[in-house]
Design a protein around this nucleic acid. Sequence first.
DNA 1: AAACCTAATTCCAATAATTGGAACAACCGG
DNA 2: CCGGTTGTTCCAATTATTGGAATTAGGTTT
Lengths: 253, 253
Amino acid sequence: MSSQTVATVERAADVLVRFAEAGTSTLGVTELADSLGMSKAAVHRVLASLRSRGLVELDEDSRRYSLGLTAMRLGLAYLDRIDIRRLAAPELAGLSARTTETATLSIRTGLNRVYIDQVKPPREVIMAVSLGVPYPLHAGGSSKAFLAFLPEVEIDSYLSAPLDPLTPATVTDPERLRTELALIRRRGYAMSISERQRGAASVAAPILDHHSLPAAVISVCGPAERFIGEADACAAALLEATDRLSARLGHRA
Amino acid sequence: MSSQTVATVERAADVLVRFAEAGTSTLGVTELADSLGMSKAAVHRVLASLRSRGLVELDEDSRRYSLGLTAMRLGLAYLDRIDIRRLAAPELAGLSARTTETATLSIRTGLNRVYIDQVKPPREVIMAVSLGVPYPLHAGGSSKAFLAFLPEVEIDSYLSAPLDPLTPATVTDPERLRTELALIRRRGYAMSISERQRGAASVAAPILDHHSLPAAVISVCGPAERFIGEADACAAALLEATDRLSARLGHRA
DNA sequence: AAACCTAATTCCAATAATTGGAACAACCGG
DNA sequence: CCGGTTGTTCCAATTATTGGAATTAGGTTT
């Protein structure tokens, strides 16, 4: 079939991905070699090559590597193509400021959903999401907000496959989920407590386009204990924001 | 001497960079091959490899390639891991050297702001700040530089609470302050004479992140009497430094 | 200060993997 | 229905990658 690929490039890509996965900001040659099962020499050469293109940077003093400016350019170039992000950015900032919680923006990629932006409030204990990581459409506020506003056919098709739980609180029974989706449509927003991420809670609502389909979803989220008390106020602010954005995409109420 | 590198990896990196340069558009195999002087076969294999790691995506219909989710994750990982203090340290040193005054770095913590670093010039009479002490957002150069570049909602909310004076020169009238914030945004930097600290003067400008929100503020400050004459020159050097740093945080002018 | 450890870098011959031209297939517009 | 384009696959030639070992650099302990 089609595995017409270049192993060297894949290994170089693996090195890059390692930087994104690793919790630490810098990595050493040996560290990378061990975790990827490559020889130190190979890793070193790959790093030198990536460095020549600015994808990674070398701290001459510590002899450790980190992601470089070019890596950032790639990420921002990707995000540039998504103009909903530009449109929503000020609303995210406003929401986060008004609620003093984290505001996020997600888009759909097939049967998944990824965060593509977030604005965090300037306080100590906050919730922070991982941008770019795919999550299923049935667990968590943002996911359910997407699912609820998809065409019926797509909902049926999604619910016909088994639903894996991400936490003990994830709803995996299709009929219970269906009932909840109806509620979400009626209220206009979804709510979740620990469904996707333990200890996290959120309210989420879609930005609807001129077909009344969700172009993106905005959520306001925070640590569950604190957030539950704020949820109603957050939902109100959230719906104001998504209404404005939906209007800009040509949606009529 | 020899740059111990892997040509294949460098070419793969060139392909990726092409996507960042091309910005919003998608790219085809031939297009890439021509512009990079590579064979179509080589480009195709590289793309297949990058695709296997999610760095690029293929639109099956148009058979054209674009950057993928992993590219975004790399960019955001870069942004996440930036240690603003380390990044700014050389610029602080440079600024202090060029101006022969003190250069400081501040971050925000909610409704306050704290100095987290400073570089003092080697002369007798200088200004020195206290690291880690919280100051309000309306008094002094660094504070106003933060406030001016916050989302409107946050400015409104901040100005709706009473503003206490720290010195006789502190501006406490919300409307006068609002006018000044507009000036700061226009000029790109804030100036203060004795607003926070009697006898002290400063110019300050924000380091803006990819949301155009202030990640930190740099100031150049000194004893008021002497500093006032140097302020313009200091402001010019300051803006050069903050522009460079903002660029590293993904801010585009 | 010296010795010792660990990590990073360079060297080199073996060889496994990349390469590019050309053939093939898929697509588009006329 | 048919040329013109673009994307994909094949295959033998050969080039560039590879990994082990040697070397250098840095940092820490004795």
